[in-house]
């Protein structure tokens, strides 16, 4: 479970997140949406301690995030927007293995995790390929595999569908759904609710750094007017 309490984050004079308390239950599928600048990305970057709160607290599975960053970052996998900017290696296998290597796991365990992470995103047997030669959808899936190789309990994705064509988008959707079915809680940050309408069981709508609506899609639908969120 990921929980924030009265979270405040400021960039200089601008308050990006203004007193947000939200809980991500184990095994849930949560969509976080809102207009550009509503604080979505800033909020989720607190989930694994990439940012430090100016006020408030963040807990992962009951423990404060800052107490053990390795534990928090292992429990909460994160996939960034524009995955191309975030790869650390030139080939698929070397990139997916980066997280497990940092955890100091044995080589056999790392290899096994790379294999299973790649197979979870439908990229079996492609560990030796160069990342810069992959298509957009394949790139997105390798980025997800990189997070999965840490064997997280929770997976956070920032705009995972941006720039993907329809078939690629569907394939990513399917993978997220099956991960969620297998028990991983999934948080998807998006300004496009249509992409996650079928799979998310709860939507949090952010506006100017505060929660404007929180509930099942049907309940928040009415509140989306004027928030610059593309409804399903």
């Amino acid at each position: 479970m990921i929980r924030t309490e009265g979270l405040v984050h400021r960039y200089g004079d601008v308050t990006a997140v203004d007193g947000v308390s939200v809980t991500v239950d184990d095994g849930s599928f949560l969509a976080v949406c809102g207009a550009n600048g509503s604080g979505k990305t800033t909020l989720v970057r607190h989930f694994n301690g990439l940012l430090e709160p100016d006020e408030g607290e963040v807990f992962v599975d009951g423990d404060p995030v800052g107490a053990d960053l390795v534990a928090a970052r292992t429990a909460v996998g994160m996939v960034f927007q524009n995955p191309r900017d975030c790869f650390v290696a030139a080939t698929v296998g070397a990139d997916v293995g980066f997280g497990p290597e940092n955890l100091g796991l044995a080589r056999e365990e790392i290899d096994a995790r790379v294999e299973s992470a790649l197979s979870a995103v439908g990229m079996d047997g492609r560990r030796d390929e160069r990342i810069d030669r992959l298509s957009g959808g394949e790139t997105a899936r390798v980025a997800i595999a990189g997070a999965l190789a840490m064997e997280p309990d929770h997976l956070v994705l920032d705009e995972p569908f941006a720039g993907l064509d329809w078939p690629a988008r569907q394939r990513v959707q399917e993978r997220l759904e099956s991960l969620n079915d297998a028990g991983t809680s999934v948080v998807v940050v998006t300004h496009d609710l249509g992409a996650v309408a079928d799979v998310s069981d709860r939507v949090v709508v952010l506006s100017d750094g505060t929660i404007a609506a929180d509930g099942p899609l049907g309940a928040v639908r009415a509140g989306l007017e004027g928030l610059d969120v593309r409804p399903p």
Partner: peptide, 16 residues
């Protein structure tokens, strides 16, 4: 951005 991606994956001094 790249530094954030490294941190999210536990960039460590003592990897395998």
């Amino acid at each position: 951005t790249f530094a954030l991606a490294l941190q999210a994956r536990c960039f460590a001094w003592n990897p395998t």
